[in-house]
Amino acid sequence: MSMAIRVIPCLDVDAGRVVKGVNFTGLRDAGDPVELASRYDAEGADEIVFLDITASSGDRQTMLEVVQRTADCVFIPLTVGGGVRSPDDFDLLLRAGADKVSLNTAAIADPTLLSQAAERFGSQCVVLSIDARRCPPGVSTESGFEVTTHGGRRSTGMDVITWAIEGATRGAGEILLNSMDADGTKAGFDLELIQIIRSVVQVPLIASGGAGSLSDFAPAVDAGADAVLAASVFHFGEFTISQVKQALVESGLSVR
């Protein structure tokens, strides 16, 4: 027996409400992140990721309440990201009931945030979220992939390999690797991106972006992912968590 491949649904949350349509039947409130997290838990999700896309920092309290209510009824790991700027933000989320906190743009602006958080709370709760893409014309990196910010709209010119290594060295205990090229295409994960990051870091790797069919998941694992994340395919009811797990099992992989 070996570790189970984790299947993780990601929910975008804006001011305490899930955005992007959710196509579950039988939900009392399809916009409530807590009810959705419970639903995914019941379906066999191995973790839940909340991405807080709230623009206004005045609504931070709303997210903390969502995390608290989720932790009150969902007994699987919960990762929360979005808008985290300081170790104190980490502390508030962990106390509210998050198990892991993901950093993205803030860590690029101040990489010491990763080491500060790892020292204070432990690497196990520090997730580095990387939005990567193939270099567009005019940008060049050794790996051919660069790190972006602002949801893939802004170039940093930084090599994704360099950033992944620095992140892990600074204490990130996990990397959430989003392919901005594959994201939304439903054409499968960016396997080359997964392979090159897997070959340079020893921390667990979550592959994200591009899932469109049940046959997309096993290749991501074969490329080196320890976990697979998807959003819209689950939310729109195209397939369920358990169907993804069944497909992984049929490919000879272990699941919970």
Binding site: M1, A4, P204, A227
Partner: peptide, 11 residues
């Protein structure tokens, strides 16, 4: 181990 932390569901 090749990958650390040991993170996830195990037997």
């Amino acid at each position: 181990a090749p990958i650390l932390p040991h993170m996830g569901w195990d037997t």
